[in-house]
């Protein structure tokens, strides 16, 4: 099959280009246009850089004071999603620890005495230094118990152990409940509603 190709046409390169000056002035016009627009224009502080208006062309933010919001769906720090009663939704099924390509999740399981779900994590630790932020753990979770929707990235720490987050540190954010939770959560082992 013949391919639709075209030989790139080179820009004109005649005596005018050969004598430097014309193209140099042209280049200088472009950069000085940027310079004067940025010098005299009021900077638009819209954190969405692509939507900034006005004469000013500056495309950066003055970081600690201005911050760009991460878009929805941004894979940030993990959190363990709590139930309405504040306990983790996690049932310690080890799916996230299994699927993690970096093996950064460590779980130890324990058992509830009276709830319908038997297992819960007694230890749930994520080493954020090992984490490669692929989001597979979130996908792998069958209980919607781990999410990466905190909107922050993992913080800078001064020593390696501090980058390992335990269950208490991870269990935060708004509680989540699903209609299907009724199957497992909130019932005793015999299937009776729990009395809180």
């Amino acid at each position: 099959m013949p391919i639709d190709t075209v030989t790139i046409r080179e820009p004109d390169y005649g005596p005018r280009e050969r004598l430097y000056l014309r193209e140099l002035v042209r280049g200088l016009l472009i950069t000085s246009r940027h310079f004067f627009r940025n010098l005299f224009g009021e900077r638009d502080l819209n954190s969405e850089v692509g939507e900034r208006q006005g004469a000013n062309l500056i495309a950066t933010v003055s970081y600690p004071e201005e911050r760009r919001a991460y878009p929805p769906g941004y894979r940030g720090m993990h959190r363990l999603v709590p139930r309405e009663d504040g306990k983790p939704r996690c049932v310690a099924c080890y799916m996230c620890a299994t699927v993690c390509p970096a093996q950064c999740i460590y779980i130890e399981a324990g058992e509830y005495d009276q709830e319908g779900i038997e297992k819960y994590p007694t230890r749930f630790e994520i080493d954020e230094l090992r984490c490669i932020v692929c989001g597979f753990c979130v996908e792998a979770c069958p209980k919607d118990a781990i999410r990466m929707d905190t909107g922050t990235h993992s913080p800078a720490v001064l020593s390696r152990p501090l980058a390992t987050f335990d269950k208490e540190a991870l269990l935060k954010g708004p509680a989540v409940s699903h209609p299907t939770d009724a199957i497992t959560y909130g019932k005793s082992r015999r299937g009776e509603p729990l009395k809180h």
Binding site: G50, P71, R75, C134, G135
Partner: peptide, 22 residues
């Protein structure tokens, strides 16, 4: 780089990360 970052912004919205898209 400015143009690239604009495209990376779109990639971030699509994939959840700039470079480590997965």
């Amino acid at each position: 780089m400015e143009a690239r970052e604009l495209l990376y912004d779109r990639i971030t919205e699509l994939c959840g990360a700039r470079v480590t898209t997965a």
